[in-house]
């Protein structure tokens, strides 16, 4: 039985996708562990693998028409050293896994693995990132929020591949990233948060807040964000409990091997409070 395909280009890859039920694999850092069986035994996949990590069409980083385009097979380590990648996104990436894993792992892999703890996701949600999914005949464009529908579940159809990740080039003067892991080095996330804001003359012009690892998918409350846009920053501190009440229901963490639901919720509270009550003092947050 064929257990792997190594297409020479995207066209061939999409053709295989159309004809064979298979599992796209880029870096393999998640899939190889999830299917590992131990020493001397190859990981067991229920379908053949389609290797996509090497496809040149999936390895671009470019700016076009208001979007930063990142190929899904770009390595995390390549993003860290690329001038187009926003610093605040690099901050999140630099805390992912370990240097050797970042030399294998890809952005597309982190998205398609659709883990609630995926560390690139809060930023991509906050930025309203969009994805291009292609099959041999068509492509479609889908917001990341619609693409990921649950833990390990995506809208990717069996004949499709993720071929592009589009991040609006909007610049946010205020950015804040916080990852809480089990230890400082190489650890999965208990809670993560990406906050982005633009403050003009003391008023909230734009605001994005996304939590990772506290619900089946990344949590972003647009209602809450919208209710704060146009408000004076100076009132956020006194209104915090009211804001939290708006946010709180969407934060539905679980107990697992790494932490507890109660802790995760409490940390979300602390993070959100830290972020919003310090918005006034933009510089401090920017340097965070």
């Amino acid at each position: 039985m064929v257990n792997g395909y190594h297409p020479k280009d995207l066209i061939e890859a999409l053709k295989i996708r159309a004809e064979v039920s298979c599992i796209p694999l880029a870096g393999g850092t998640d899939l190889m562990v999830q299917n590992a069986r131990g020493t001397g035994l190859s990981p067991n996949f229920d379908k053949p693998l389609l290797f996509v990590g090497h496809l040149p069409e999936l390895r671009h980083i470019e700016k076009k028409e208001g979007f930063l385009h990142i190929g899904p097979s770009v390595l995390l380590s390549e993003m860290l050293s690329h001038p187009f990648i926003p610093e605040t996104f690099k901050k999140a990436i630099s805390q992912m896994a370990s240097p050797p894993t970042r030399n294998l792992a890809t952005l597309g892999g982190n998205i398609c693995n659709a883990s609630p703890a995926g560390d690139t996701l809060p930023f991509l949600y906050a930025m309203d990132a969009e994805l291009i999914l292609e099959n041999h005949a068509f492509d479609r464009r889908i917001p990341i929020e619609e693409f990921i529908c649950g833990p390990k579940q995506t809208e990717l159809k069996s004949d499709e591949l993720l071929t592009d990740i589009l991040i609006p080039t909007t610049l946010f003067p205020v950015s804040y990233y916080k990852k809480v892991g089990q230890r400082r080095g190489m650890s999965l996330t208990k809670v993560s948060f990406h906050g982005l804001a633009e403050i003009v003359d003391g008023y909230v012009e734009d605001l994005r807040m996304a939590f990772g690892s506290v619900a089946p998918t990344v949590v972003r409350s647009r209602d809450c964000e919208n209710s704060l846009i146009g408000e004076p920053v100076s009132t956020l501190k006194s209104r915090f409990n009211e804001i939290w009440e708006l946010y709180e229901p969407s934060i539905q963490p679980i107990d697992d091997a790494r932490s507890t639901a109660t802790y995760r919720k409490n940390v979300c509270y602390n993070i959100l409070k830290d972020f919003l009550t310090h918005l006034e003092n933009i510089k401090e947050i920017y340097n965070e």
């Binding site: 190889m32 990981p43 370990s98």
Partner: peptide, 24 residues
């Protein structure tokens, strides 16, 4: 991929050999 005991260089960069399928 947690311990690094199987680390090798791939195109000059450190990677863990336990995470790399032959196809890559």
């Amino acid at each position: 991929g947690e311990c690094g005991a199987c680390m090798v260089l791939m195109d000059g960069k450190a990677v863990n050999a336990c995470l790399i399928p032959a196809g890559n």
